[in-house]
């Protein structure tokens, strides 16, 4: 009758490759244990478009455009505990490799001066979010409670982390589960 309330989890991939989400699925049969304890709010797994009040937010990927900023702020506003999941959320990762290139020159090199383009214009559809001048890790935009590095963090590391969090312990992912690669 009085089963404990299921915790609500939201997940999102900003400037990421969904590899961390794939790794989340790599917890294999533990996903059943997880679903006994949690329900998913906004996530690629549910296709819910906006995040409601949640206990845990898992953010994959860094912040590369204006839409990422809005989504990340929504997550921070709605999630009690916000987690940077994976290398890109932690330090910008692969997308941040563009940070030493001027974004205007980069767009023009790709869309204007590359041979074989039908129309040599930088796309400017109003639906396209504007790129930021640099890709930022999420802690440079909002306060982040916990960080789980790795490219991606292993399913084992994610499960260890979530088990700690769900049990009310301070999550601790140490060697040998702690990896940056």
């Amino acid at each position: 009758m009085n089963a404990p309330r299921k915790l609500r989890i939201a997940t999102v991939s900003l400037a990421g490759c969904f590899g961390c989400h794939m790794s989340l699925l790599d917890i294999d049969e533990q996903v059943f244990a997880l679903l006994e304890r949690v329900e998913f709010d906004r996530s690629p797994l549910t296709d819910i478009k906006h995040c409601g009040p949640c206990d845990i937010g898992l953010v994959e990927g860094g912040v590369c455009n204006s839409e990422n900023v809005h989504v990340l702020r929504e997550f921070r506003a709605e999630c009690k505990t916000l987690v940077a999941l994976g290398a890109c959320a932690v330090n910008g990762g692969l997308p941040a490799q563009r940070n030493h290139i001027d974004v205007g020159r980069c767009l023009s090199a790709v869309f204007q001066s590359r041979p074989g383009m039908d129309t040599a214009e930088v796309p400017d559809d109003p639906e396209l979010p504007l790129p930021l001048d640099k890709v930022h890790p999420i802690h440079e935009v909002v306060r982040v409670d916990y960080f789980l590095p790795g490219c991606p963090p292993s399913g084992e590391a994610i499960w260890q982390f979530l088990s700690d969090l769900l049990a009310g312990r301070t999550p601790r992912v140490a060697s040998p589960l702690l990896h940056f690669d």
């Binding site: 940070n99 030493h100 930022h136 802690h139 590095p149 992912v173 060697s175 702690l178």
Partner: peptide
């Protein structure tokens, strides 16, 4: 990197220079 593992550094915490 190995030192960061030993000392359980999970975040660079500060603002990146991206030199």
């Amino acid at each position: 990197q190995a030192m960061a593992y030993d000392l359980e550094m999970t975040t660079p915490r500060f603002r990146h220079f991206y030199p």
